[in-house]
Simulated assay, not measured.
Amino acid sequence: MTTQQPSTGQPDSQQPDIDTRIQDLLVRAEIAEDLLVMEVDVAGTAAQLWQAITDPARLAQWSPVVPDRVLHSVGPALSRENPEDDPVTADVLATAGDHALTHRWGEATVAWVVDDGQVDLQITLPDVQQAQYFAAGWHVCLAVLDAQHSGEEQARIVGMDALDHGWDALRVSYAEEFGHPVGPAPGEDA
């Protein structure tokens, strides 16, 4: 499993800005066939992290997945990154207590496991070459979640806004780590 964490040399006594937090977030990531596996240490208790991945109001503060219902039970759900967006399926496929959840996200399937201070994701991808995009996006989002659970007022960073916060450099780095060709950035021809 590879790890993304460049050093910035920022003293511990200062709260890092979000770009520094994104750059410094320790993310262990690997590809296993069509599966992107990410492990991230983030601030928060298991209960706080469970709420962060299941409650639409909390998801709307940090995640691109904003469902139309709480994701704590198996059944249909729809998700929109932004209220005006067309919905994508977010059907809950499985849950295990208050620590594991599997749901669809459009053509992908996202499995979450949370524990005190840790989030593990397994994303089944429709095309494994998309891993660089998914990894970079979730890396940014999880840094926002970490900032919020560390007591900082940090707005959600999703979609094209992530480009202003190091998303493209992360995408290139993940592509190289996964041994994939670097794909086009948003707005570039494939």
Rank of each mutant, 00 (worst) to 15 (best):
A100Y: 08
M160D: 14
V182T: 10
A43G: 00
T3V: 15
R21C: 01
Q154C: 12
D189S: 14
Q23C: 02
H180I: 10
Q48Y: 00
P186S: 14
V119E: 02
Q148E: 03
A46K: 12
E84M: 09
R80W: 01
L170E: 11
G9M: 11
V70I: 15
S13G: 01
R104T: 12
L142T: 08
R171F: 06
A147P: 01
L142F: 09
Q14R: 14
A46E: 14
A60W: 11
R58S: 08
A155R: 14
F134T: 07
V114T: 09
V37I: 13
Y133D: 15
D24E: 15
D120V: 14
H139Q: 01
V42L: 01
A60Q: 09
S173G: 14
I18Y: 02
V144A: 05
W138Q: 05
T124I: 01
P64A: 08
P83T: 04
V119C: 05
D19N: 13
A77E: 07
L71V: 07
H72V: 13
D19R: 15
T102A: 14
D161K: 13
G75T: 04
D41Q: 15
Q61F: 00
I22E: 04
G187Q: 13
Q23L: 06
P181I: 07
E177Q: 14
T102Y: 01
D86M: 04
E188K: 08
V74I: 12
A90M: 06
A60M: 09
Q5H: 15
A29H: 05
G97M: 11
V74Q: 04
D12K: 05
D41G: 10
D24V: 03
L163G: 00
L93K: 07
Q61I: 01
L78C: 03
P184L: 07
T102I: 05
W112Y: 15
L121V: 09
H72F: 04
G44V: 05
A77R: 04
L25G: 02
L78N: 11
L93E: 10
V37C: 07
V110R: 09
A32H: 09
V140D: 05
G106M: 13
G44S: 02
Q129R: 12
P126G: 04
L93F: 07
A90W: 03
Q129S: 11
L125Q: 12
E188G: 08
V65N: 05
L35C: 05
V88T: 13
D86S: 10
D34L: 00
E176R: 15
W105H: 09
M160N: 12
Q14K: 13
D120W: 07
A60H: 06
F178Q: 02
V40A: 03
L145A: 02
Q15I: 00
Q15K: 02
Q148H: 04
P56A: 06
R104K: 15
N82F: 11
E39D: 10
W167A: 02
S150C: 13
E176L: 13
H180A: 05
P181G: 12
T109C: 01
V66I: 12
Q61G: 11
T109I: 15
R156M: 11
S13Q: 11
Q4A: 11
V88Y: 06
D55G: 00
P67V: 02
W105D: 04
